[in-house]
Simulated assay, not measured.
Amino acid sequence: MEIFDLFGDDIITEHQNEKNKQLKSEKQQIKNELHRQKVVQKKKEKKKKIKQQKQEIIQTLETQEQKNDFVHQFKGLRNQKKENGMKALQSPFRIIIDCGFEDNMSDKEQRSLARQLSELYTENRKIDVPLKIYVTNIYPILHKYLEQYNYKQWQLVSEERLFTDIEEFQQANIVYLSPDGEEELQEIKEDEVYVIGGLVDRVIIKNATLNRSRQLGVRSAKLPIGQFIKKNYKKCLNVSTAALMISGWLKYKDWSKAFDSIVPQKFKEQEANEQ
């Protein structure tokens, strides 16, 4: 009885903690499954909507020749996306998404990262100057979320390894992009490889990517965007936007024009603030 009095509370507390952990894990599994179903349903709805719009357009066309031409153009657009994907794989301009920030993100933020990578892949197949994309350090949870977007079919390079362990980059000129870097990136060079931290942080983690670059022993630099962003907004971009800024510079050779073409209006410095 005395032993139980001494250790009974600890045993009960430990048992309750284990039970709480199990309940939390089960709730998270249910939440993840609901999210997966939601993503799948959205895909089905989008596919159905495109098919319906296609049929509606065909019905407005008068002749069979017009209908055949439209179907041919429709297939041509799909083929063009595939060709653009192949073009991206051959691009001399390389970017790495370093997904080595698992411990810094919540489950929701990791799902958001997977969505951003999907958006980046989609947009990269549309732009004038596509980038060759490497997604590295893919860990099990992120892999699970990326599978919801069929990422194994993407025309890019995906790796579970850290990019410094990949032979192609061991002698490369690496530039790790960080909003906390002291140096501003002036131009994009073909002989440099640009790394973007695969980090989604709703509450900004100061120096996260800068410390990562120092840990890996690679040069860091920041995109010169501070002068274009409203004062009350953070001076860092999400993963897909940061990558597309690089392509924007390659198109315009001007950071201001790249920023205007890529970044959402809500972040932009208004003319009234500049005067």
Results as ranks from 00 to 15, higher is better:
residue 137 N to Y: 05
residue 90 Q to K: 15
residue 123 E to R: 14
residue 67 K to Q: 09
residue 131 L to K: 10
residue 68 N to D: 13
residue 79 N to H: 12
residue 127 I to L: 08
residue 271 E to G: 03
residue 231 K to L: 10
residue 83 E to L: 13
residue 58 I to T: 00
residue 206 K to C: 03
residue 244 L to C: 01
residue 193 V to H: 08
residue 117 L to R: 08
residue 109 E to F: 07
residue 180 D to M: 07
residue 131 L to C: 07
residue 87 K to F: 01
residue 60 T to P: 01
residue 34 L to Y: 07
residue 128 D to P: 03
residue 32 N to L: 08
residue 224 P to G: 02
residue 108 K to N: 05
residue 170 Q to R: 08
residue 28 Q to K: 06
residue 229 I to Q: 03
residue 235 K to M: 09
residue 73 Q to W: 15
residue 166 I to C: 00
residue 48 K to S: 14
residue 203 V to R: 08
residue 212 R to Q: 01
residue 188 I to H: 05
residue 35 H to S: 07
residue 145 Y to T: 01
residue 47 K to E: 15
residue 145 Y to L: 04
residue 189 K to D: 07
residue 246 I to H: 05
residue 11 I to H: 05
residue 19 K to F: 10
residue 273 N to D: 15
residue 125 R to D: 03
residue 143 H to S: 11
residue 249 W to V: 04
residue 96 I to D: 00
residue 239 V to I: 12
residue 201 D to T: 12
residue 147 E to A: 09
residue 26 E to A: 12
residue 9 D to W: 13
residue 253 K to W: 00
residue 149 Y to P: 06
residue 57 I to A: 04
residue 185 L to F: 05
residue 273 N to S: 15
residue 26 E to C: 00
residue 15 H to A: 08
residue 142 L to C: 09
residue 44 K to M: 12
residue 132 K to Q: 12
residue 103 D to S: 11
residue 266 K to Q: 08
residue 259 F to Y: 09
residue 2 E to W: 11
residue 80 Q to E: 15
residue 26 E to Y: 09
residue 136 T to P: 00
residue 260 D to L: 14
residue 131 L to D: 05
residue 106 S to W: 07
residue 223 L to T: 05
residue 140 P to N: 06
residue 16 Q to N: 15
residue 150 N to T: 09
residue 203 V to A: 06
residue 165 D to T: 06
residue 70 F to P: 00
residue 155 Q to R: 07
residue 192 E to P: 07
residue 172 A to D: 01
residue 24 K to R: 09
residue 92 P to M: 04
residue 175 V to F: 03
residue 234 K to E: 14
residue 65 E to H: 13
residue 53 Q to N: 14
residue 245 M to I: 10
residue 81 K to S: 11
residue 91 S to T: 13
residue 68 N to I: 09
residue 244 L to T: 06
residue 177 L to H: 03
residue 31 K to G: 02
residue 85 G to V: 14
residue 87 K to D: 02
residue 53 Q to S: 03
residue 183 E to F: 08
residue 201 D to V: 07
residue 218 V to F: 04
residue 6 L to R: 09
residue 46 K to Y: 14
residue 152 K to H: 11
residue 235 K to G: 10
residue 60 T to Q: 11
residue 56 E to F: 06
residue 142 L to N: 03
residue 39 V to G: 01
residue 37 Q to S: 10
residue 80 Q to G: 08
residue 245 M to R: 03
residue 169 F to N: 01
residue 83 E to H: 08
residue 36 R to N: 13
residue 25 S to M: 04
residue 91 S to L: 05
residue 207 N to D: 13
residue 42 K to Q: 14
residue 82 K to R: 14
residue 267 F to S: 02
residue 137 N to M: 11
residue 28 Q to M: 07
residue 158 S to G: 10
residue 252 Y to E: 11
residue 29 Q to F: 13
residue 257 K to V: 05
residue 173 N to V: 06
residue 7 F to T: 06
residue 274 E to D: 10
residue 158 S to P: 01
residue 144 K to Q: 14
residue 177 L to R: 01
residue 188 I to N: 12
residue 109 E to M: 05
residue 143 H to T: 08
residue 196 I to W: 02
residue 140 P to H: 11
residue 87 K to N: 12
residue 140 P to G: 09
residue 220 S to A: 15
residue 202 R to H: 05
residue 89 L to I: 03
residue 55 Q to F: 07
residue 84 N to C: 10
residue 57 I to P: 04
residue 207 N to C: 05
residue 144 K to V: 08
residue 124 N to A: 02
residue 183 E to Q: 11
residue 179 P to W: 04
residue 229 I to D: 06
residue 266 K to L: 05
residue 93 F to H: 15
residue 85 G to T: 14
residue 46 K to V: 02
residue 112 S to E: 12
